[in-house]
């Protein structure tokens, strides 16, 4: 408290009587989202995963295996796998810590003491996390496009954009599901681990649950069938094979359908999270 400014010299009001301002819900949501994006930009998570992906991919690209020209397909496959894993880790880890760390660090209290509803807070976190992973995806796909373009001398920009769009839509479901998880599980680490396992499980087993159900006795069969229909099918958004083999674009109708599917699931998860969060006491 050195260099004390005389109180009389700094009027608390800017000029005249206090002016009543009021922000729109969208502007409050966006304000919260920008803080999330800023946080991701200032943390090391993305940079570490990007450098790791780039290092592995560039190292593989520099190796000439048996003089095989088609080896570039394997390179693309590995690079896309790394991008998928990295994006899922970034999305889940970033989202999982949002609400629990707001509570742990008590930043939630000055924020909720402002004219922000809990629904707007959740929406802001969702938009922020989704936009932030979208920016990460853009960097990853730019790198992928550059690497495969240099190796193959072909630039299927539209195919890359479509793959990125579908990937981003899939991440909207993952982000909203993780946000719901962060309301249910208080600790960010447990939420992150559970959501990584669940997402991995859905990606690897989700599409085979119906086949698994056939061989099961009741009530297991109904239960597994139920899971098959209830769980979001994240694998529907995986068009890596198309990029690797250069099979062209997915027609517009299935893409629109997939986007609507992702939007419905994201809205459902957000509604559930909001319903639970509004009933949760947050005591100082």
């Amino acid at each position: 408290m050195n260099n004390v400014v005389p109180l009389q010299s700094t009027p608390l009001r800017c000029s005249g009587p206090a002016v009543e301002f009021r922000s729109s819900p969208a502007s409050r949501v966006w304000a919260i989202a920008t803080v999330v994006i800023r946080e991701l930009c200032r943390r090391k998570d993305f940079y570490v995963l990007f450098i790791l992906t780039a290092l592995i991919s560039v190292t593989l690209a520099s190796v000439n295996i048996f003089g095989d020209d088609k080896v570039v397909r394997y390179l693309k496959e590995i690079c896309l796998l790394l991008i998928w894993v990295s994006s899922l880790v970034i999305a889940i880890v970033t989202t999982a810590r949002q609400i629990p760390s707001e509570r742990e660090n008590r930043t939630l209290f000055p924020l909720l003491a402002k004219p922000v509803s809990r629904g707007q807070l959740l929406m802001g976190k969702f938009v922020g996390c989704w936009m932030a992973v979208g920016l990460c995806l853009l960097c990853f796909y730019l790198f992928f496009g550059l690497l495969s373009g240099i190796k193959e001398q072909s630039w299927p920009v539209l195919a890359y954009l479509q793959a990125m769009l579908l990937h981003w839509a899939m991440l909207a479901m993952v982000v909203s599901m993780t946000l719901l998880g962060s309301i249910v599980f208080a600790a960010p680490s447990s939420n992150g681990t559970i959501l990584l396992v669940v997402t991995g499980g859905i990606l690897f087993v989700g599409s085979h649950l119906n086949k698994l159900a056939i061989g099961l006795p009741e009530p297991g069969q109904t239960l597994v069938y139920g899971l098959y229909y209830v769980l979001p099918h994240l694998e529907l958004f995986d068009v890596r094979e198309l990029l690797v083999h250069g099979w062209g674009l997915v027609p517009a109708a299935p893409v629109v359908g997939a986007l609507a599917y992702a939007a419905s699931y994201s809205a459902l998860f957000l509604a559930l999270a909001s319903w639970r969060f509004r009933r949760m006491p947050v005591n100082t």
Partner: peptide, 10 residues
């Protein structure tokens, strides 16, 4: 700036 935006202050 963040809190000012929450309040809708120009």
């Amino acid at each position: 700036r963040f809190y000012a935006q929450i309040f809708g202050i120009p």
